[in-house]
Structure formats: structure tokens, C-alpha cells
Design a protein around this nucleic acid. Sequence first.
RNA 1: GGCGCUAUCGUCUAGCCUGAUCUAGGACGCUGCCCUCUCAAGGCAGAAACACGGGUUUAAAUCCCGUUAGCGCUACCA
Length: 426
Amino acid sequence: MSDIRVRFAPSPTGYLHIGGVRTALFNYLYARQQGGKFLLRIEDTDAKRSTPEFEREILESLRWLGLDWDGETVHQSRRLDRYREAARELAAKGLAYEFEGAVKFKIPPGPVKVYDTVRGEVTYDSAEFEDLVILKSDGYPTFHLAVVVDDHDMEITHIIRGEDHLPNTPRHILLYQALGWKPPKYAHLPLIFGTDGTPLSKRHGAVAVSEYRAQGFLPQALVNYLALLGWNPGTPQEIFSLPELVKQFSLKRVIKSNAQFNPEKLLWLNGQHLRALPGEDYEARVTEFWKERMELPPENTWRKLITLYRPRIQTLGELKEQASYYFSDATYSDPETVRAIRAQTSLVELLKQWAESVSELPDFEDTTPLDQKTRQLAEGAGLKPKDLIHPLRLIMTGGTTSPGIFELMSLLGKAVCLSRLERFLA
RNA sequence: GGCGCUAUCGUCUAGCCUGAUCUAGGACGCUGCCCUCUCAAGGCAGAAACACGGGUUUAAAUCCCGUUAGCGCUACCA
């Protein structure tokens, strides 16, 4: 057990987004690895834009991701007196003054050195800073005061946050000094941008964690992907579980340059995690995801369906769309191919023979006899198996891509297959 | 504009501190091949980068300086 204490301090003025998660994750990883504490603080001093709904959404997203925090969640809105007290103290010492109903911190001149764990020493000249509003005229503290007071009171030892805060750090250090406190250590993380290099926004697609969840991403995939944005283990390993990340994480290997969010790699990683899941976990995940979105097929069929699609989907959400021919009748979107099949009288004849032949089977549960009969029939007609299989696929699914034809027919069942064929030939 | 941070394949990155092992490695994506009833999954192969210019040095992706570019901050937002 160490006495390292870090915190994630979101502001409930929006959903938990990709950038926020990455910050939360790195704090979490550092705390867990060092045997320290990972604390949560809600920065709701912007009374106009903060809402309880956003706060709930943020907490829910963190829980879903598995980034559990320690202790009670601190709310800045409940500590107003404490900030006013700090502001008064500063004013009493002559280090702050009133200005148009607000209180401003008088920036002392001189160089300020910031020791950043990932960037090294950065020096600022405080002569370039304007005096800082620390208490707004509505009596609420600004971010700067609240952050300093809270991090001190919560005994935060390491502040790990986005690089956008780097220029704020010298101001905060000045506040610490004015209040007679010792500043914590800092580590500023590179920022995450969209694929065009501009700040991540809705234009780039999903940015909220809840959206990824709704699309059927696995929390471990999102965590894995985000861990690799701005950090790497120095080994070729790409697939990580959260515990593995905790074990291997190091602030020293945090990258300094900004990164672009790459949705394709996330998709790939999600597929990897999906396939790495133990069978029963996979089944539980897909089922949990889909049972609240539609009425599930009978258990036996459902199991066939999700097994067939395990290597084919990248997200849980893709299942229904990819297997749409199961959920509704086959729709033949390419009339050319349909005509071509119907125009071949010998093929039509063969399809009829096929129907007759497989009708003898009690059901399509077992794919072996289906497979045998189909191949025998094709070869008997002097064709290759695929010459019969491809038309069958089109007839059964409406398209040209699907899982293996026999597994697929087993999934659909004898009755559906035969009626689709009959309807097609009619 | 000022101040600060950053700069290796399209993208994420290894290598940079401790210069020679780098004809620059891995991953996503892309292309081709294999597997194969199609599509995936899987396997194999390929194209693809040290921003530019000066130094220092026997030797620089690696050290120094400059330029350029990108980003951040410059709010009674956080």
C-alpha cells in the first residue's frame, strides 16, 4: 500500500467522452498499479451547464468500463464555503483583491517552474499571466481555485490530466504557494483528436462512451484501445486486459505527442476481444445486449446464430444487420442474378430435385446429410458443389455472402428453407 | 499576436536519454496469395515513414541550433 492518491475530476456539463475516459483510465492504471487510491470528484461549479443527468451518465460509464473508484465522490458544489474561506484567506494576506464583485488572485511576478513527469521541466514567466479570477461574482469558485483547494484537501499526490491544462499549471502552482501548500506532481497527457486532426467532436462519429456501449463495443476493447493512445508497453503486445494494463502501465512510457483516434483499429480490437472471450462469456454478452433490443429467437437457434457470427462481427450491434435474412424474409436486391438463375432450366430442375431430396430428412439440425446430399446431387448433374451452393445461398439469404451454407440452412430450419426455395421458383 | 508543447509509414507506435547493431521494427488500414461453397476469421507476403536546413562527430532517426507545421493556453468554461 502506497500513499499515492490520484483523481479523475469530470465536469458534468456533458457525457463522458473518449478524451475523458483516457484521462480517467491513466489515473486508474497508475493508482491501481502503485497500490494507491483513485478518487472521483465532480467539478460542478459551472452552475448553469452542470446537470445531475450528465453526472449520472458519467458515473454509469465509468462503472461499465470497470474503472471503479475509491471512497466517496466529492462534489465541488457542496464545498462552496471552503473555497470562499480560501479566497478570504488570500485576500487577508493581501494576495487577492476584489474586482467587480469577483475576487482576483494577484499573480506574483517571476519565473515559475513546472516539473512534468512526461515532459520534464517547463518554465513560464508569470509576468505574462493576467490576475486570475478565483471567485466569481455569483460566489462560485472558478476552476483554478476549486482544483487547487480540492487537490490539497483530498491529499492528491499526482495530477494526471490532459495537456490542455499544462499552461494552467504554473498558475495553480502560484496558488499553492500563496496558500502555503505543497503542490502535487504533474503529468500531462497528449490530447486525442479526430481522424482529420481537429478536436474530437460529433462530426467524427461517436464520442460518448454510452454511444460505444450502445453500438455493442466491449468495455475491455475500449479500454485497451485508449490505453494504447499515448502509451505503449515497449513490447509488441497489442491485446491487453485491464489487469494486464494495471500491471504494465508506466507514466514513464507515456508519449508526448498528440494522437488521432482511429475507429478502425478500435473495431479490430473489439473483434479480437469478442473472439478472445470464453464461449459462455461471449454468449452472455451478446444475449444481454440483444435481449433488451428485440425478442430473442428460441434458445437453440439463438445459440447457432451467435456461434455462426462470432468470427464475423466486430461489434455486438452488427449481428442483426448481418443476419437480417434470418430475422425477415430474404430480399433479392440483385434482380439480374435472380433472373440468371431462373433462366437456367437445368439448374431450376436441379433445385427441384434438391428440394425433393432434402425433404426426406426429418429436419436440418444435422448439417452432415445436407452437405452429402447437396454435393452428390451437384456432382451427379456434372456440376461442382459450388454451382449449386451459390444459387442456394442467394435463394436463402437474398445475397452472396453468408456463413457456410449448411450451417445457415440448419439455422433457418427445414420449413423456412423449403418455402424460400419454393417461393423463389414459383 | 504572445507564451508553451509536439514533430518516425495514411493512422497508432518501437527505436532517441546511454550516436555505430536502423538497408528504421510492430500494429490497424490497404494490396496480393493461401485456406475455402461466398463472406468473415486465420495464415503468409507486399507497398508505405525518420518535416526541412544547418551544425557537432570517423559516424545522427538518435546530440545542438534554426526554420516550418500542428496543437494547446491566452474566459467571472472546466
